[in-house]
Amino acid sequence: MKEIVVIAEHRRGELRDITWEMLCKGRQLAESAGANLNAILLGKGVNHLAEALKPKVNKVFLIEDERLESYNSETYERALVRLITERKPWLTLIGHTATGMDFAPSLAARLKMPLATDCIGIEIEGETCSVIRQLYGGKINASVSFVKQGPYMATLRPGAFPVLEKDPLPGEIVPLPSPLAAETLARRFLQYVEAAVAEVDITQADILVAVGRGIKDAENIPLVKEFADSIGGVLACSRPVVDKKWLPKGCQVGTSGKTVRPKVYIAIGISGAFQHVAGMKGAGTVIAINKDPKAPIFNVAHYGIVADLFKIVPVIKDKIKGLRKS
């Protein structure tokens, strides 16, 4: 019987959303292929996480070791190489997250296993697998096949696979001895550091005006700032605007920034890369302004305005000012 395994991602005592997303997709794949769905959990003092995973899988392989307490690509790789070589799962699923991007490529290379990264779709077709990935910042989709025979490895994009309720499985926790020896590591975890607290809290605003690279230059920021002020909104932005230091980090929406759920989110000159969308898709109503009708942001927006922001934003600002005065 085929085996599909999900490498559970967790941090500071909690399983991350991507783990549930992978388990749900894994379940569907397992059902379609008549396979077993198992999870691998590495850590220290994570029995409660194994319990949480149990109803979602046939087996939870649990390795506890103090060297696995904080994620480290080296210890993860050593433990996983051993486990995967022994069990030979036909498909291994890992999250395309900061963690997955750090160990999946080297793990696959070490195991000589074909890897498809950042998949937004994956299906089993007989003895092989086909995946969908995105190219060019999400403007194009590609169907991709594996050339060689399985086993395969794939990293799944966070937020691309819905979490649906399913009947629980008769899960079983299988504790395994740690294969890690007391060897010196070339990479050592030191600590986590938290982002500094921002001056303005964009997570509390009802109306957010978010600006992206389309704003072109720091000197154009006042245009959107005035617009935000005129509608009682708060200014937010995509990552490049922070990278270029046009706005502070606390304004950034997305996977590596803030997750926001305003009543209205107005995205101006933002293309809609998944790392950005992940942070704003909980917004009540999304209005996107972009000059490119094919910008991916129009797939998540409720209302779209295909226009040059420099032409349309001043008009909207003046109109609303006029209406609110009268």
Binding site: V144, Y303, I316
Partner: peptide
């Protein structure tokens, strides 16, 4: 290890309702 079979435009799911008209009209809708 992997081979690109074909590319296609991402399917438009519940695509945005595009606001059309003169800038003034769009502003009013916003």
């Amino acid at each position: 290890d992997i081979r690109l079979e074909k590319v296609f435009l991402p399917p438009v799911g519940e695509a945005a309702e595009i606001l059309e008209g003169k800038p003034e009209e769009i502003a009013l809708k916003v």
